[in-house]
Amino acid sequence: MKPKLREAFNDEMKAMNKAYLAGDLNLSFYHLERAHILGQRNFKTHLETHWWMLKIGFGRKDIREIFGQIIRMIAVFPASLFGWVPVGNTGGANVSALKPMPIPHDLALFFEND
């Protein structure tokens, strides 16, 4: 993972954790979606975002999110093995795990020259 991409990922995870500790699960999930976009090409960061999404699913008592994240956590292994991730996908159970999505403009700069 390139240093600037890693720094952006870490910034989103810090913002996620701050919101999580404050009990704002919606804001926490927002930052996780952004972190997922940044980290989905790396096995460890990809798995980490889904783990936290699972935790928030439990916190919200959201059965759809819980089951969706369990499936996604299992899928991280073959996705990493074969190098396939749907670019821009936010990672939540509210979207297809196979759907590429537009990358927000402020995050797109971290993928230039890839």
Rank of each mutant, 00 (worst) to 15 (best):
R64C: 01
K99T: 13
K61R: 15
P86Q: 02
Q69K: 05
A108P: 02
L81G: 03
G39L: 06
P78W: 12
L109G: 08
E48T: 12
F67I: 15
M16N: 11
L107D: 09
R34T: 08
G92A: 14
N10T: 07
M53R: 09
R72L: 06
E112R: 14
T49G: 03
V85D: 01
K55H: 09
L21A: 11
Y20D: 11
E12N: 07
F43C: 01
P86K: 05
P102T: 06
R64V: 13
M13E: 01
L54I: 00
G39M: 07
K4V: 10
G39D: 04
D24F: 04
E48V: 02
F111E: 06
G57A: 13
M16S: 11
L54S: 00
T45G: 01
G39Y: 04
G68R: 04
L38W: 04
G83Q: 10
K2W: 04
V95Y: 09
L54F: 13
A19W: 01
G39I: 07
P86C: 03
A8D: 07
K18P: 02
R64T: 10
M53C: 04
I70Y: 01
P86I: 02
P104T: 10
A35M: 08
Q69S: 10
I71C: 08
I37N: 02
M53H: 13
R60N: 14
E112T: 14
P100L: 07
G57H: 12
D24K: 09
L109H: 12
W51G: 00
F58L: 15
N89F: 07
F67H: 12
I74L: 12
L32N: 02
R64K: 15
R6C: 00
G23K: 07
M1E: 11
M73D: 00
F110N: 10
G91A: 08
L21N: 14
N94V: 08
E48S: 12
G39P: 09
S80M: 01
D11A: 15
E7T: 10
N113L: 05
G59F: 04
L107E: 07
D114G: 01
P78T: 11
H46M: 03
H31E: 06
H105C: 00
K55V: 01
G92Y: 05
L5D: 07
F77H: 07
A79V: 00
G57T: 11
V87S: 10
M73N: 01
H46T: 04
I66R: 01
I70M: 14
L21P: 01
N10L: 14
L109C: 13
R6N: 11
W51P: 00
L32Y: 06
M101Y: 11
G59Y: 05
L98I: 14
K61M: 14
G59C: 03
F110P: 06
F82K: 12
F9K: 03
L38V: 07
A8P: 05
E48H: 13
D106E: 15
R64A: 13
A108D: 12
D24P: 03
A75R: 06
G91Y: 04
P86V: 02
A108V: 05
T45H: 07
V95F: 08
Q40C: 03
T49S: 10
H105W: 00
F111G: 08
Y20N: 09
A79M: 15
N17V: 00
D106S: 14
V85C: 03
P78H: 12
I66E: 02
Q69P: 06
G92S: 15
N89C: 09
T45K: 05
A19Q: 05
